[in-house]
């Protein structure tokens, strides 16, 4: 029941985020049914796949009564493709060094996470705010541990609401929402659970 409610939260928020990505890129975006993981830290690879893969991650903190961490995770190629489309570039940019491309991705991440948060906030009636976006390109394991540890503490099990987004030209991304401990009860409270 709690998992179902969390999936619904993922659906509402990620659906809005996918719509905003779709309108930014002027392309159709498909969204998976959100998966809800409650997973011990040492098994986090089961949810995330090989932790060694290079990924581009946009990270924003969600602040307010239902605080948490939001991440938009892309393959290097998908990030290049999004930046190329947003900036009308003739070819794929070097995502490691091209600051314009990074800035465009941050903006896209900002808009997506904002859409997620607005949907969540409207639905739950809980006011939420966002931090500025941070971007990093590295091994997904390293990115994830930094996000998880950002508050300086961590539970043994992590709850992740995970939605896959995909589009033509092999564009693929993941939208993750990791609610903080106390946020979970607040969000579930909306469902009367």
């Amino acid at each position: 029941m709690r998992f179902e409610a969390l999936k619904e939260i993922g659906n509402i928020g990620s659906g809005n985020a996918a719509t905003s990505l779709s309108s930014m890129l002027q392309t159709r975006i498909d969204m998976s049914v959100p998966q809800v993981w409650l997973i011990p830290l040492e098994k986090i690879n089961l949810a995330m796949g090989d932790l060694d893969q290079t990924r581009v991650a946009l990270y924003l903190k969600v602040e307010g009564d239902a605080s948490g961490k939001a991440m938009f995770v892309l393959s290097e190629y998908s990030a290049q493709l999004i930046a190329k489309k947003l900036l009308y570039l003739p070819e794929l940019p070097d995502i490691f060094n091209d600051e314009m491309a990074q800035s465009a991705l941050k903006e896209a991440g900002n808009i997506m996470v904002s859409s997620f948060v607005i949907a969540l906030s409207t639905f739950s009636g809980i006011p939420l705010q966002l931090s500025t976006p941070a971007l990093a390109i590295d091994m997904i394991g390293a990115l994830l541990d930094a996000v998880l540890l950002e508050g300086g503490q961590i539970d043994d099990n992590v709850l992740i609401i995970d939605t896959k987004l995909s589009a033509a030209e092999e564009l693929e991304g993941k939208f993750l929402f990791i609610p903080d401990g106390g946020a979970l009860d607040k969000l579930l409270g909306v469902f009367g659970i």
Partner: peptide, 10 residues
């Protein structure tokens, strides 16, 4: 051999 993958702030 021992291995750990993707150390960030860990």
């Amino acid at each position: 051999k021992l291995m750990t993958v993707g150390l960030g702030s860990c």
